[in-house]
Design a protein around this nucleic acid. Structure first.
Lengths: 191, 191
DNA sequence: TGTACATCAGTGAACGCGCGTTCACTGATGTAC
DNA sequence: TGTACATCAGTGAACGCGCGTTCACTGATGTAC
């Protein structure tokens, strides 16, 4: 049963979005092609009509996840972003959360193509963080602002990852989130 | 061919240490039992004379890696530790480097037993960081010092992970390391 | 101390299973006349 | 506009392969007499 060109394109996009979520939840090695296609509502055979290999999809899913997790928070200012990023809700919703924190460590073991996608994702998150903090972009202290954002992103991503590595009911998991949330607020208010 | 009790115990410890290194390099799903036993100098069949399952070994290897990566730097003061932790050498030597940065994201998808081991590892790294900074432990500002160390560890672990997620020759990979190194130095010198 | 036997760490073949990938087939879509 | 045919997204069986795990076997170690 063939399907219209527009439908096929929508199905493809849906597979990429589903994969992006499942990979964030279970890691690249934790999701099989058959798993993934079933989750998207298809049988596994059709996979190779859309993608050359699982690795190809991994690269596309990474790009999709990195674009979406930054885009969805573009409306927030710095303070609200920090609260949401380092919330228990975000920690417990890996599938719909930050791709950097969920798959950054996995990316380190993947192909240069995927690593390049992650580097672009970090640059985008950086650009958005700078836009969010409402700096005037007319000065040469851009350099200082960029450094501050790199520090903040590293701390936020690290805190989220470490919090997730703790058992679900661990007091340490909450302590890491709260401590870094307070510190990042203090840092962003007095530059 | 049987082997002396002492030798068997040494072999077991060697398998755990080898596993700890391989897991840090390739992730839990990236290393097979046969791989691992061959790397340790054995055939795969003997594995189950030492461990109940691969998951059991994963827990032991995590404990081993977390104990060793902190212990090996106990002699350094805060400044030297930061320089070593956020060096290119550490970034490029995942197998012998920090288990938190290499496997923290993987741990989030593993059993509560492994997560508990990681939480203990974070507590140990915290205790050592506090000892390293030479605070007098007689005050109730212990609380403030602990918060500062949590912030520093989150930032350092996040920076290392993000740097590793970038392509090998990426300027961003070095920039993240250098920026966070400078910031952590500034933070630790003026409390 | 010397001999006989039980133990058990390590070997290597074999197991079922799920993985990524391939393939012949289907049938609605899109195109040519 | 209507008819005939090529296209190709999606199906489901099948492929080889490597995984975690099991097992019968070996032979030096450790123990009992």
């Amino acid at each position: 049963m063939k399907v219209s060109k527009a439908q096929a394109q929508a199905n493809r996009a849906h597979i990429v979005a589903t994969a992006s979520q499942l990979f964030r939840e279970r890691g690249y090695d934790g999701v099989g092609v058959a798993d993934l296609m079933a989750a998207a509502g298809f049988t596994h055979g059709g996979f190779y009509k859309h993608f050359g290999s699982k690795a190809d999809l991994m690269a596309e899913a990474a790009a999709c996840g990195l674009a979406q997790s930054s885009g969805s928070t573009a409306d927030l200012d710095g303070t609200a972003f920090i609260d949401r990023y380092l919330s228990r809700e975000h920690r417990d919703a890996r599938g719909s959360g930050c791709t950097l924190a969920a798959l950054g460590a996995d990316a380190a073991r993947q192909s240069p193509a995927i690593k390049a996608t992650f580097a672009e994702g970090i640059e985008r998150m950086l650009a958005e963080a700078m836009a969010r903090s409402g700096q005037t972009p007319d000065e040469s202290d851009q350099h200082t602002v960029r450094a501050a954002k790199i520090n903040a992103i590293a701390q936020a991503v690290g805190a989220l990852m470490l919090s997730r590595a703790c058992p679900d009911d661990s007091p340490l998991a909450d302590e890491i989130l709260e401590t870094c949330r307070r510190d990042l607020h203090a840092r962003s208010s007095k530059p």
